[in-house]
């Protein structure tokens, strides 16, 4: 749930990376941490086990001050994907303003993806939220591995689903910022519908996105910034990375 602190002129948003175990949620956040400008993000906090499995969550805060003088904080969390952490997932997911669902492209993980998706919907309901109202973007990660769903299959899913869908190789950073960009844009649009960010806080979508993505590595920045300027539709046509790692 977005929080407003008028006394401190502060807006806090929460987005959550959800998905089955080992799909690459933590990797996504680590990459975001690497790719964003150190000025605009805090430390990445990982509450994990010795073998790098997320135990409670990862948290990466991003913050900036709007030209109108509001401090905007975006808290980005990952949930632990292992089945046994169901309660923790529900707690971390609670109050999310937007969700990136990180699916594993490997064929063997199809069922795990579905289960995680169902549990996410269930958690929304238990947290008293209407899943229909939550901005969700989907990422098909690990496109570099063999035995993954084909590009055509992903394309078909993309064409049919109402959520934007992105292919990614998170360990290389491919598709990570695209996913985040779409997530933040969708989240902003959904929130501003209710809270009128531009009218009440003088915060436009373009300023919001530019503040987060400023000074990112040039090859990413140009494409992303071009999209901000052009106000391109929220479904970004992700260019597919060929399975087998040709890129």
């Amino acid at each position: 749930m977005v929080q407003f602190n008028h006394a401190q002129r502060e807006i806090t948003l929460k987005v959550v990376y959800y998905g089955p175990a080992l799909s690459g949620k933590t990797t996504n956040l680590q990459m975001v941490h690497q790719l964003l400008d150190p000025q605009s993000r805090g430390r990445l906090m990982s509450l994990d086990t010795a073998d790098d499995r997320t135990l409670f969550f990862d948290l990466l805060p991003v913050f900036f001050k709007s030209q109108s003088g509001f401090k905007v904080k975006i808290k980005m969390y990952t949930v632990p994907g292992q089945i046994m952490h169901q309660s923790t997932r529900r707690i971390v997911l609670s109050g999310a303003d937007g969700v990136a669902f990180i699916a594993d492209s490997q064929r063997s993980e199809a069922k795990a993806n579905t289960e995680a998706w169902k549990s996410m919907m269930e958690n929304f309901k238990q947290n008293g939220l209407d899943p229909e109202q939550i901005p969700i973007v989907v990422q098909f990660n690990k496109r570099d591995l063999p035995n993954v769903r084909t590009d055509e299959e992903i394309e078909e899913i993309r064409a049919q689903s109402k959520e934007p869908v992105f292919p990614a190789v998170a360990i290389r950073g491919d598709g990570v910022l695209e996913t985040l960009f779409a997530l933040l844009r969708l989240t902003f649009r959904s929130l501003t519908k209710h809270y009128d960010f531009e009218g009440k806080f003088g915060l436009s979508e373009a300023e919001f996105l530019r503040a987060v993505f400023k000074r990112v590595a040039p090859e990413h920045a140009n494409a992303l910034l071009a999209r901000i300027e052009s106000g391109a539709p929220p479904v970004v046509q992700g260019h597919l990375v060929k399975g087998g790692g040709s890129q």
Binding site: R43, M45, L47, L55, F56, F57, L59, H85, Q86, S87, T88, R90, I91
Partner: peptide, 24 residues
């Protein structure tokens, strides 16, 4: 601060998760 916050979050999340599982 980072280290302490991490510790607080860890123990609090532990409590919250256990409490939540218990309620379930």
């Amino acid at each position: 601060l980072h280290t302490s916050f991490r510790q607080i979050l860890t123990s609090q999340m532990h409590i919250e998760s256990v409490t939540s599982s218990y309620h379930e």
